[in-house]
Design a protein around this nucleic acid. Structure first.
Length: 825
RNA sequence: GGGCGAUUAGCUCAGUUGGUAGAGCAACACAUUUACACUGUGAAGGUCACAGGUUCGAGUCCUGUAUCGCCCACCA
């Protein structure tokens, strides 16, 4: 059990022979003679410390102890129901594969915090879980299936496709859990959640229904970001702009048309309904208000000349062909000027034109692809002598983050969350937002941070946050994919067009939205209802994470609307700390603030710590495509999870990027060994003495040493509280190595060699006290080596020895573990 | 176009009430059966990007410049 993880992987290069690894007693460099002169060093104290051997044992013992569950800690008397609560939710990793070294950073910092607070006697809860990551996961599986079987999701059908995705997600989940556990994360697995499981689905439906009833969720036709590759809508935040070369064409629609326009997309011009010029542009003033009926490349179009401030006078000809159906800007202009919307491109990025149009592919009997149509239109313009200019420009083009498809703006009917629409909030604990008063979701997001209830670290991200909120538009929450929470809306057949894709003018009666489906609710004509095909944006469900994981809405009394006393929700919400990456500040952090504020009238957490990005040694961002992601398990096997954790803690200030340097990690492996050897020295040098809490015969010198030491550990305590893990860990490191080992231990050799018995006694007591304290204070950072050392200090035996004939760890009393000890400062 | 951040030793980075510049790694010299070679000691290494300003005093505060990075945005 303890060493099945290192069966000779490529990264596993220890100086010991594999054959001797199972037995610490054989772990001696020179086979003939023992290297230690002292005859009575206990076997578990042999050197060097071997994390690959010790860590899996410590992890197993920590996990089986159940101490990560605050209820167990209450049961054991380590904390009580009166004690303050401290809770963190693990940002759920996507089930799209495996964790990389960036995840390790977040997990480490959270674990430091939770272990620290647990040792301080709080009811500490850290909740694990994973995220279904809708589009990301589906497109990953789609890609795999397409590659291996040459099939699309439509070939498989919705049910079969979902089965395949579930299978992949399960496998991915299991890998991720193994990885997280190997880092020594003390999560309460009994409360594990998944963003797409049944309990979370209930939370999603409940919030959806509430928002729907409050008029905050609405269905509307708008220009959406359509990803032709993924065949779905995506939100503004999921777009990545890329610079590409493009050609800018300048031309007139026809010989009689008075104004030349410029565009990079001539094929969309068959959908133009206006030409816009700047209101103060004298060149075109005389034409404003006139309408021209034209024949453009086989399509009849009607173009009105309008004046609008959105037009830049000095760009191109200063005139813009307005295509309301296929451009965001143009759409908004069309609303201002009441222009008709003509859709000429479909979901597959093909032209919607009549069969006699030159842009119609007569062989395939379908509209041409937009790229082909573009060439065709340019060709036509040339033939007609309308093309005036053709120039190369660099264009910033929107692409889908997940699939890489080029975004095609299309008018579609989608579900939206209105962020500026006023509603009455029944109950609010958010400062600046009063119970029973009107507010907006945007205001909730603003006030929660601006009133100081939520602190963002580092502070300068406040500005980024507010800037985003100020420019926030309604949130498009529907996705045309299959993997995710299906929209809890049903249409009665015959009365409505249930496809959300098409703009339908049919009357929309008999729309049913509720937590329970018509069948579950027992509607008499339940079988006549058909559920909306679309699923929800993955961030809709992860936005509920802090409270959906704590039993909402089941922990709410249906009659009073109050949170039930003693429930997880009442005990652990709001959570205390969120540690995550700044890249999901908008996606996730802001959405959690929105959702929690709306559903509970609460903040989701009081502190947000945004960690930097872990880069590779060259400074490149870790990514799967570059293959430089790195596996935290591999590093842990090689150097120890403690070493990796110490690296994370010490090399990363909040919000600043760090580079993963194996050399440094190796240095922290040495540090674990240093702790180990300090303990060996102290235990052998103080053989005749025992730890004595009430000892008071300190020499003057040792009193000073004690005071210095305590000052440093008090500072460490303060810095962990303030989430300054880099400062706290550095102090532990510096004190242990440079002060204790290099100065005090060396000095102690003289003390022990001398004949001042009083000084010897005092020093021995000091050292025994100090190694206990260091072990405790270092535990949140390096839980494994410290747990192992603690075992030696308290029982005289190593953990390995203690569980050798006890695989169920029945002989280990959880309360005796270091993890359960009281923080002394 | 707007916003945010960074610039400190060869490398990677710390350094918040403004008070004599720090760590790890690398490199150099020395020590060598020592708790630990996964070691110790010592020395070396910086005009804290640049230019101004405030101050008795600025890596730290203010203004501007340069370079790099990130985020947002509707130049067709």
């Amino acid at each position: 059990m303890t060493n099945n993880t290192n069966s000779g992987g490529p990264g596993f290069e220890h100086n010991q022979e594999p054959a001797t690894q199972n037995n610490p007693k054989n772990n001696i460099r020179d086979t003939d003679k023992p290297i230690y002169k002292e005859p009575n060093i206990p076997a578990p104290l042999l050197s060097p410390y071997n994390p690959a051997l010790s860590e899996p044992v410590a992890i197993s013992i920590n996990e089986k102890s159940g101490l990560a569950n605050p209820d167990k800690c209450i049961e054991l008397g380590l904390t009580s129901t009166d004690a303050p609560h401290y809770s963190i939710v693990l940002p759920p990793p996507n089930v799209t594969g495996t964790l990389h070294l960036g995840h390790g950073l977040m997990a480490t910092l959270q674990d430091i915090s939770i272990r620290f607070e647990r040792m301080r006697g709080k009811q500490a809860l850290w909740i694990p879980g994973t995220d279904h990551a809708a589009i990301a996961t589906q497109s990953k599986v789609e890609k795999d299936i397409s590659k291996k079987e040459g099939k699309s999701r439509y070939d498989l059908g919705r049910d079969e496709m979902l089965k395949r995705i579930d299978a992949f997600a399960t496998e991915s989940h299991d890998t991720i859990v193994t990885q997280i556990k190997r880092m020594g994360a003390s999560l309460d697995w009994s409360r594990e959640a998944f963003t797409l499981d049944e309990a979370r689905n209930k939370a999603v439906r409940t919030v959806f229904k509430k928002m729907y009833d409050d008029g905050l969720i609405y269905q509307g036709s708008r220009i959406v970001n359509w990803d032709p590759k993924g065949q779905t809508t995506i939100s503004d935040d999921e777009i990545v702009h890329e610079e590409r070369k493009a050609k800018l064409y300048t031309f007139k629609y026809s010989k009689d048309f008075p104004i030349s326009i410029s565009t990079t997309r001539p094929e969309t011009k068959v959908g133009d309904t206006a030409v816009a010029v700047h209101p103060e542009d004298e060149r075109y003033a005389e034409y404003v208000g006139k309408t021209y009926d034209l024949d453009f490349c086989g399509s009849k179009i009607s173009v009105k000349i309008i004046a609008d401030h959105a037009v830049e006078k000095d760009f191109g000809t200063g005139a813009l062909g307005v295509t309301p159906a296929h451009s965001m800007v143009d759409w908004e202009m069309s609303r201002r000027h009441d222009l008709p919307v003509v859709q000429v491109i479909d979901e597959k990025a093909r032209m919607i034109v009549s069969q006699d149009s030159p842009l119609y592919d007569k062989e395939k009997n379908i509209g041409m692809k937009t790229t082909d149509a573009r060439e065709k239109v340019v060709e036509w313009l040339r033939e007609q002598g309308l093309l005036e200019k053709e120039e190369d420009i660099i264009q910033r083009i929107g692409t889908a983050e997940r699939t890489g498809g080029i975004i095609e703006p299309l008018p579609k009917k989608q579900w939206w969350v209105a962020v500026t629409k006023p509603f009455t909030i029944k109950h609010s604990n958010i400062s600046g937002v009063q119970s029973g008063q009107q507010t907006t979701l945007k205001e909730i997001m603003q006030k929660a941070v601006s009133e100081g209830q939520i602190a963002i670290m580092p502070e300068h991200y406040n500005k980024t946050y507010f800037h985003w909120i100020d420019n926030l538009n309604d949130w498009c929450i529907s996705r045309q994919i299959w993997y995710g929470h299906r929209i809890p809306v049903w249409y009665k057949m015959g009365s409505s067009d249930q496809s959300s894709g098409a703009i339908s003018s049919s009357a929309k009666s008999e729309v049913y939205c509720d937590v329970l489906s018509p069948t579950e609710a027992g509607l008499p004509d339940a079988d006549m209802y058909v559920q909306d095909e679309d699923t929800l944006d993955t961030w809709f469900s992860s936005g509920l994470w802090t409270f959906s994981t704590l039993g909402w809405p089941d922990n709410i009394d249906a009659k009073t609307g109050e949170t039930m006393a003693g429930s997880d929700l009442s005990r652990f919400h709001p959570t205390n700390l969120l540690i995550t990456g700044p890249d999901i500040l908008f996606f996730w952090v802001a959405r959690m603030i929105l959702m929690t504020g709306y559903a509970l009238g609460e903040i989701p957490f009081s502190k947000v710590y945004l960690n930097g990005i872990v880069r590779d040694i060259k400074g490149q961002k870790m990514s799967k495509s570059l293959g430089n992601g790195g596996d935290p398990v591999e590093i842990s096997e090689k150097y120890g999870a403690d070493a990796l954790r110490m690296f994370y803690a010490m090399s990363t200030a909040p919000g600043t990027d760090s580079r993963l340097d194996e050399n440094k990690i190796k240095g922290f492996k040495h540090f674990a060994n240093k702790i180990w050897n300090i303990v060996r020295f102290v235990l052998t040098a103080t053989e005749n003495h025992t730890y004595d809490k009430s000892f008071s015969g300190w020499t003057e010198k040792d009193s000073v040493l004690r005071a210095e030491r305590d000052d440093i550990f008090k500072a460490v305590t303060r810095e962990i509280e303030e989430s300054k893990y880099h400062l706290a860990s550095e102090k532990v490191y510096q004190y242990t190595w440079s002060t204790l080992a290099d100065v005090i231990l060396e000095d102690s050799k003289f003390v022990f060699a001398g004949n001042d018995e009083e000084a010897k006694l005092s020093r021995a007591k000091f050292l025994l006290e100090t190694i206990r304290l260091i072990t405790i204070v270092a535990h949140p950072f390096m839980p494994h080596v410290t747990e192992e050392v603690w075992s030696l200090l308290t029982t005289g035996k190593s953990l390995i020895e203690r569980v050798q004939n006890d695989t169920s760890h029945a002989t280990i009393n959880p309360s005796d573990l270091l993890m359960a000890q009281k923080w002394p400062f």
